[in-house]
Design a protein around this nucleic acid. Structure first.
Lengths: 146, 146
DNA sequence: CAAATCTCAGCTACACTGACATGA
DNA sequence: CTCATGTCAGTGAAGCTGAGATTT
């Protein structure tokens, strides 16, 4: 292989991971990868406003609004007006949403763990690197805003 | 932070990298991240048939056919019938395509290198892990086909 | 006739921007 | 009035499948 740059390799890696994940999730849970991420993040955040959720996902408000409409229709989340603020909508996972989020997570994790095993990669090392990079991005973004 | 799984963290990381990459590329080169990947892969492969390119990218034939039409229109690639096979189309980067691919690569690499530096991550380590995982995916795919 | 390669047509998921309504 | 929040409308980039044409 040619001396490809790390950024390119990493990009290719995750593109492929997403594709595989997409397929597996479709079969095992019936939802898409993107929707699964939605549910994961929501599970992590608990009950939040749509705007807050949009920020956490890095999406625009309208994008979240539309995606939520679908997820509500499918029974995975509920939205309710914030009693303390007439404009805000509080978003929460339903029990079905919780359940499918957990299931989707297990499916993806199992798949990834197997890959890590096959590749003979140190999961702790990978995890540490990934976390550092994510934090660095967050840092940088914070700096750019100020 | 909650004990998020490595696969999830990695997915989030690259989603964010792609988003940043998309923005920077737009500004600095005028092309999208996906198109850049197209050009990168083509540069790596040299002159190939559309079908071969589709396999390398993991896309369907029609997807490649349409993307190529755009890239030809923009002058980044040329397609020519294979003299040895009346049905095949040979795809090649034009000089402009080469140039923009190189420029896009530099832009992305510079950005990523800075991030790696900020995060205080060992690039060699990251590179090694990424390469191992990509090879493991390729291995697995080969096995599943047979 | 079968297989490989490319294109056409139609469709879907998912994201964005800009404009707007509404409540704090 | 202005900011924050959410929705509506329109649009775009990029992928898919299924069907068809053409060449081997």
């Amino acid at each position: 292989m040619a001396p490809e740059s790390t950024s390119f390799l990493l990009g290719r890696l995750v593109t492929q991971l997403e594709r595989e994940g997409e397929q597996i999730l479709r079969v095992e849970t019936g939802i898409s990868y993107k929707r699964a991420v939605f549910l994961f993040v929501l599970r992590f955040l608990g009950t939040v406003t749509q705007h807050h959720l949009a920020e956490a996902l890095g999406y625009s408000d309208p994008a979240v609004s539309m995606m939520l409409r679908e997820l509500v229709k499918e029974g995975f989340v509920t939205t309710a007006p914030d009693p303390e603020h007439g404009r805000k909508q509080l978003v929460t996972l339903t029990p079905e949403g919780q359940e499918i989020a957990i299931r989707a997570r297990h499916v993806l994790d199992a798949h990834f763990d197997e890959l890590v095993r096959l590749a003979e990669v140190d999961d702790q090392q990978l995890r540490s690197i990934t976390t550092k990079l994510i934090m660095a991005i967050a840092e940088k973004r914070k700096k750019e805003l100020s």
